[in-house]
Design a protein around this nucleic acid. Structure first.
Lengths: 348, 348
DNA sequence: GACACCGGAGCAACCGTTTGCATTAATTGG
DNA sequence: CCAATTAATGCAAACGGTTGCTCCGGTGTC
């Protein structure tokens, strides 16, 4: 039913190759012919079939974006930025959600591999070796993780965690908890490392609680552990957990920041809307999305898959850039000075 | 580089058609041959190229999902549900975001049309006639809107709005504002119609403010108008606006629900996390996503596009079902009895 | 005036599958 | 023992484009 290139060729009295060139290499066709062909195409509502084109060019003009959980407000800004950047370059983005599940992640990336020119792996939960294996099948840019030899876009959460801990130290806190995120998260390891170092340097004690599911529920679930641990401040793996924790503490009769200070990470839109407003580490998610797309597309224009003729890649010198984006601490209302003794809610 | 069907054929010493059948019609191939072929395929890491298959079968096994704004927490649960349902049936979902922009929406749906077997139009901002036009190009299921002759999945926001207004009436409110949503939204019209009728029936006065951008910012921006209008209760187009409004009222020194009651619509996860917790109309978003996928896929299996041979569709009797899902009112803390006179903040 | 050159268009092979039909061998019925 | 089925496989034509090559007529150059 939809018009094909042949219909247009017939209607305009030229060969299909001329029609093809009218779209993909206009300078090779006589202006008069071109306008005639374009008119016919318009008339028939012709649109080139990208799948068919992909078959021979080896480029689908689609990119895949795999995220752990669309419902986590951390991701949408990244997705939107990636989509916008991709659209500029005439690419479409295939977004898929793994539900924080490693197996689903692997399956998805394989299923996607053939229909896209490259994949953005955002906050992958897979092992590094699995990621490397995947990257031999399809070009990959990794977001929120460092994998040697692969292009990566990272946010400097280590620095962010350090700033957060120093902020807490400055307020007098010496017993601090770290609310860990999901197993397999690179970000989680970075935060832990940096927060540990910063706490040690400041002579504070850092209790690690986790791993936890990186959602409000996950945050709320550890409220009781936090109370029992007797800490006066908490750095959470992300804002969602921080917000859940505040909620949970509230239910236990502990006030934030009067009794406990809480810092999140991500600076999602929501963190400005809760009461108290969340002190958090802002991560440049939109920039990460844009950068990742750029890296993938540049990377990718070197060596269209299935290119015939030339034996491709004059030297495998693809510069596998690794970009680290800066983070910053945003101080709002969920952190305050350490409470006087006896108010710490430990029941002592 | 990636293995093709020919490589597998060569490796296992059979014709490519046998390999093809091994995957798409296993019962037609000898069990012994089958295991040999499968072994070779496994060995070479062969995966059928869906684009090539799509070319001849006319079915891409992809579906498109177009939403107004991924960053609006209303959509992710719907997206996840749709993805899950699609995955069950070996389909993938192409999510795209229009930024609430009508033109982007139209462009996207055209770009997507050829690479998917059908499109889920979620909360479209296009005109009905444009939607009908699009539906001639590619199978469409419309979510959150009623379009005659097209399969639609709707949530009964009209009923929800009525319940909300009745709830407010029951609390004694007689001067109520409706915070309108974006232009072009069917949901918006439904709410307005139902809320108007319910208010009239209860002898209350309903002031409509809008249209507005359906975000926190949009909600916050009308806080001042709300104050000046002297109403004691507000029904917002969605939770995001309600939350923004509460925030904005707070900045003006008006407390919710003491001075003004606020009701949202959608029951996004966030509405349970703000203080006060939001009274809102719960919409069954996940169910809508699942239902829409089912309708599209059923609908769609009738008539594979580009089917050759048979002249397709023995009668165009595709039952264009229109499903209306029920909503319910969730009463939380943002609504309360009408304040005594003199406390209404109008400055009188 | 012969020759090289160039712009513009056609030809045909190819991308990786699917699928109707032809072919062959094996099985069954009479 | 022969004809008729049936099971398993091969053959080749699509699907809708792209692209290297060839072909043709016209222009510029010496």
């Amino acid at each position: 039913m939809p018009a094909t290139i042949r219909d247009v060729a017939r209607a305009s009295g030229v060969h299909i190759s001329t029609v093809s060139r009218t779209f993909s290499a206009p300078h090779l066709v006589n202006p008069e012919t071109r306008v005639r062909v374009l008119a016919c195409a318009e008339d028939l509502g012709y649109r080139p079939n990208r799948a068919a084109r992909a078959l021979i060019t080896g480029r689908t003009h689609n990119i895949g974006l795999i995220v752990a959980d669309i419902a986590n407000p951390f991701f949408p800004p990244l997705i939107k930025a990636a989509e916008g950047q991709a659209r500029h370059r005439d690419y479409h983005v295939f977004v898929a959600d793994t539900n924080e599940d490693q197996a689903a992640e692997e399956e998805l990336v394989h299923a996607l591999a053939k229909q896209v020119d490259g994949v953005l792996l955002c906050s992958p939960r897979m092992s590094n070796s699995l990621i490397e294996q995947v990257s031999r099948e399809v070009p990959v840019v990794v977001i929120n993780r460092q994998v040697a030899g692969l292009p990566c876009v990272m946010m400097d959460v280590g620095q962010g965690a350090r700033l957060a801990i120093e902020h807490l130290l400055g307020l007098g806190h010496r017993r601090i908890a770290l609310l860990g995120g999901p197993r397999g998260s690179w970000t989680n390891r970075e935060i832990r490392r940096a927060a540990g170092a910063a706490a040690r340097a400041g002579g504070a004690e850092l209790t690690v609680l986790g791993p936890n599911h990186p959602t409000e529920t996950g945050g709320g679930a550890v409220a009781d552990q936090v109370r029992r641990s007797g800490v006066t401040a908490v750095l959470a793996y992300n804002d969602l957990m921080a917000i859940g924790l505040i909620e949970g503490l509230d239910a236990l009769g502990l006030r934030v920041p009067a009794d406990v200070s809480v810092v999140g990470i991500d600076d999602i839109a929501l963190s400005r809307l809760t009461r108290p407003k969340l002190t958090t580490v802002a991560t440049p998610t939109a920039a990460a999305g844009r950068t990742a797309v750029d890296m993938l597309l540049q990377h990718d224009s070197d060596a269209p898959r299935g290119a015939r003729g030339r034996v491709a890649t004059a030297g495998d010198r693809r510069t596998t850039a690794q970009v680290m984006l800066q983070t910053e601490l945003v101080v709002r209302d969920s952190t305050g000075p350490v409470p006087p003794p006896g108010r710490d809610g430990t029941g002592a």
